[in-house]
């Protein structure tokens, strides 16, 4: 029996996710500044509206809606028209207001979901919840509460989170929402031969198979484009991978100009 999917519209990523996210799930996208978290999230919304007849809501805790709409336009996504057509709502608010709102019955968000028939939601970014609680356990509970409220509204969610580490290992703490999210995507910078590349990894997808290899991706004029896996190197997620023995041998002795 095939399970319905919620495709992101990012070809390589949907293939990694075995077709897309599972409906009604909360999906965490984490990465350093500039890795394309918000772009991925906007692309998820754009694809939902234009290709899947699934209106969406973007909750932004940082970027002004007018700026977000302008950024989307740079990729050819007409969020202003979607808003005018009642297929999208970009809602600027704060974590404390959002939590208070979703706790009540028929809150502002729930009413909006009903009004536009929203099926997808983006929360950009969860990192702002850190100002609500210093205690990691409490912070995790707040995240859990938000995720459950979005599920109650039958929304498929993309939740972004910043990771301050540009390269190298990232630290995980007790507050880690990766445990409560249904899937966990990691966007990383990787340094190879003095050039910075971008790497994407699906660390988990609850209830579904998913690709476990690390793929290269780029932010193009059309949005995110997931490409082939990194070949000939290992230690990608360390941020500074090294060549495999075979590649190192080839570079040293077989490939002209590579010495």
């Amino acid at each position: 029996m095939s399970v319905p999917r919620v495709p992101t519209g990012i070809a390589g990523l949907d293939e990694m996710l075995a077709g897309g996210f599972l409906p009604g799930t909360a999906n965490l996208v984490e990465g350093a500044p500039g890795t394309g978290k918000s772009t991925l999230a906007m692309q998820f919304i754009e694809h939902g509206i234009t290709a899947c007849d699934e209106p969406g809501i973007i909750l932004t805790f940082e970027e002004f809606p007018e700026h977000l709409i302008r950024d989307a336009a740079n990729f050819g996504w007409d969020f202003a028209a979607h808003q005018a057509a009642g297929r999208l709502c970009v809602l600027q608010t704060s974590p404390e207001v959002t939590l208070a709102d979703v706790r009540r019955t028929s809150g502002r968000l729930e009413t909006l979901v009903e009004q536009i028939g929203a099926r997808r939601v983006v929360v950009d970014s969860l990192s702002h919840f850190e100002r609500l609680a210093a205690n990691p356990v409490e912070l995790r509970l707040l995240g859990f509460e938000l995720i459950n409220a979005l599920k109650r509204m039958d929304l498929t969610a993309v939740l972004t989170r910043e990771n301050p580490a540009l390269l190298g290992e990232t630290s995980e703490s007790d507050d880690d929402l990766a445990y409560v999210a249904d899937s966990y995507l990691l966007l990383r910078y990787v340094e190879i031969e003095s050039a910075v590349h971008k790497a994407l990894l699906v660390l988990k997808q609850r209830g579904s198979a998913h690709a476990t290899d690390i793929r290269q991706y780029a932010i193009t004029a059309q949005g995110l484009e997931v490409r082939s896996r990194f070949a000939g190197t290992h230690g990608i997620m360390s941020g500074t991978p090294v060549m495999t023995h075979t590649e190192a041998f080839a570079a040293a002795f077989l490939i002209p100009g590579k010495k």
Binding site: P65, C89, V90, L91
Partner: peptide, 16 residues
């Protein structure tokens, strides 16, 4: 006018 769906506290609006 630029952000018509905003719903927030005085603290946050002042910040914006």
């Amino acid at each position: 006018h630029a952000n018509p769906h905003t719903a927030d506290t005085a603290d946050n609006l002042a910040r914006y």
